[in-house]
Design a protein around this nucleic acid. Sequence first.
DNA 1: CCTGCTCTGTACTTTCCAATACAGAGATTC
DNA 2: GAATCTCTGTATTGGAAAGTACAGAGCAGG
Lengths: 204, 204
Amino acid sequence: MGHLPTTARGRATRARILESAADLIQRRGVAAVTLDDVERAAGVGRSQLYHYFDDRDDLIRSVVHSTVDTVLAAQEPLLLEVDSPAGIDRWFDAIVANGTRQDAVGGCAIGSLASQLSGRDDLTRQAFVDAFARWEAPLIAGLRRMQESGELRPDVDVTELADLTMAAIQGGLLLAQVRRTPDQLRLALRGARAALEDALTPLS
Amino acid sequence: MGHLPTTARGRATRARILESAADLIQRRGVAAVTLDDVERAAGVGRSQLYHYFDDRDDLIRSVVHSTVDTVLAAQEPLLLEVDSPAGIDRWFDAIVANGTRQDAVGGCAIGSLASQLSGRDDLTRQAFVDAFARWEAPLIAGLRRMQESGELRPDVDVTELADLTMAAIQGGLLLAQVRRTPDQLRLALRGARAALEDALTPLS
DNA sequence: CCTGCTCTGTACTTTCCAATACAGAGATTC
DNA sequence: GAATCTCTGTATTGGAAAGTACAGAGCAGG
């Protein structure tokens, strides 16, 4: 890992590099982004890149971590409320809305990176394992609260339900990316929603 | 597109190039595969590559088409029988088995390519739209037969059910690739299976 | 101010890899 | 069996992009 900045200016520069790189990668894919591109987009020189990052691979890894943090931070408020059907609906709606943004190519920022890079080395793959685990944790916690409060049948495995939901999200986003329409994402989420419905306790 | 081979030897060489390239790409990702790699793996010289393909991009496009054909051909016998719960189970089992193969990194050959390349140009993206459509068609047809025979409720939208299933498969395979375990794939498919179960006519 | 640090700008070197050139081997037709 | 295709091997070129060198600017503490 390259030098971490100590001054405010340094932090701003490093952040700007990561932001630009993440944006470019998100749009064009990891392979199609050169260091020159990043420099131009971030308005920095070559020396800055190598001041803050060891090499290109280090930059990519940093982008992965940064992207994961950004995505999770953006969803955090919603993820804390996934302990009711209504809360889950709000979360799903946000995912659909995000996947429908005009500027977005569609697809999941994390999922896209994962399928591009998880075959690279085990360290990188592990980063995605962690990312998905962090993403799933609040969902599992929310479902567990629902189970404890009696909303969810006690015999359902909440981790399985969460895994199933994550798979639906990822698959839906991938197909939405290919077809450039959120329809299939909506359907996939509806499927996950149905699985949740099944796990609810029959109306008391 | 480069010259199509006219002799048996030529066909064998072209096929060997495509096979090696597809294998390398599947394992390392499109970006990490060089023409030298392909040459070495296929045991051919540089001139062969440029004899059968215009340039690198043409080779990649050809790999995409070839991969789609291979995957669909491999599943064809099972896909023709997805007109009963048992047939669908057999299909799902095959997908899980395929994702669990020792040599396979996991992930869907088509899905991985799609998320790497669908952002490239519209022509490439369209290839994946077609691929998924071709893949989904026999499933839709099977479900429709089930509906006509009364096995499936008449009010369910079979294309929605098929879309949902494809999303589950893709998401499950992506997560299986990241976690290197088929567990999540199995769960995702179980979710799709449950959605199907819901659509069956209540036991007569 | 001056000393030592972090940070930045530019020009250069090196490596890698796609693409080409060209000659030679193998096949096919008449 | 000569002529002309298709196919193959090796060596080279050209360009792009990663990585390096080094000097200079900005900013702290004494």
